[in-house]
């Protein structure tokens, strides 16, 4: 008889998947200055931010996958992990490891092939983090070609964070392939978390339908915005 305890239908709304692919450099130089630890820390610290963003909006349900690359590239997280229960298994650098960035891009391009990628998903996000340049340049060329020949890859949102002075911008810009979106630069290990935080805000903004990527890049990725500390998705850009 009681209305207060009456049975209600269960909640939930339909949403579309937003797949985020992290491409993480684990080459030998990533041990300098504790870069790899800083990267692990940064990914752990943006997770709550992504969880909050997922809670606040009605469209996207976030899934994470990751590829680690050094002497070769392999899946660090292969099956899509929902952000709500996501736990980042820490990466470690490979002693004197190379930078097989090309192979990493090829792995992701393959996962994005239209027959493997769900049609209802939002455009995926590719986040490349490196402190060097590809040592597998021939693979890099093939990887870029495969990525952009693929409609999902072509439609994806691509961001890159360069750590330190060793990162090569011309390769990263070819990966981003959008003149409006600059490479984010983390001068040192401390800045990795700041850049990754800004990247997360950029992801949330760019994934909102009707957003202007250039405007988001100007607000979030450009130098002035790089001074920002904790970002939140409360305001409209």
């Amino acid at each position: 008889m009681t209305q207060l305890n009456a049975i209600m239908p269960g909640g939930g709304i339909s949403r579309r998947s937003l797949h985020i692919f992290i491409l993480a450099d684990c080459s030998g130089s990533m041990k300098i200055d504790g870069r790899i630890q800083a990267l692990n820390y940064a990914i752990a610290s943006i997770t709550p931010q992504l969880i909050n963003w997922e809670k606040e909006q009605e469209q996207a349900q976030i899934f994470i996958r990751a590829v680690a690359f050094a002497d070769n590239a392999s899946w660090h997280i292969q099956s899509p992990e929902p952000i709500s229960t996501f736990n980042w298994p820490p990466l470690s650098h490979v002693e004197k490891g190379l930078t097989s960035m090309g192979e990493a891009i090829r792995l992701v391009a393959d996962a994005l092939s239209p027959e493997k990628f769900e049609p209802r998903a939002l455009r995926p996000v590719l986040l490349l983090i490196t402190d060097g340049k590809p040592t597998d340049v021939d693979q890099f060329e093939i990887g870029i070609k495969e990525l952009f020949a693929n409609p999902v890859g072509k439609a994806s949102i691509r961001l890159a964070i360069a750590i330190g002075q060793g990162a090569n911008f011309s390769f990263l810009n070819r990966f981003i392939n959008d003149a409006d979106i600059p490479v984010m630069v983390a001068e040192n290990a401390d800045q990795i978390v700041v850049k990754l935080t800004a990247a997360t805000l950029a992801i949330s903004k760019m994934s909102s339908i009707g957003s202007d990527r250039k405007e988001v890049a100007e607000q979030v990725i450009m130098p002035e915005a790089n001074e920002l500390g904790v970002l939140d998705d409360d305001t409209i850009i």
Binding site: Q3, L4, G11, K55, E56, E58
Partner: peptide
């Protein structure tokens, strides 16, 4: 809390 967060919860508030 945000309205959308509430709508996603399995247990929904009553109709009133």
């Amino acid at each position: 809390i945000s309205l959308v967060e509430m709508l996603k919860e399995r247990l929904q508030p009553d109709f009133r």
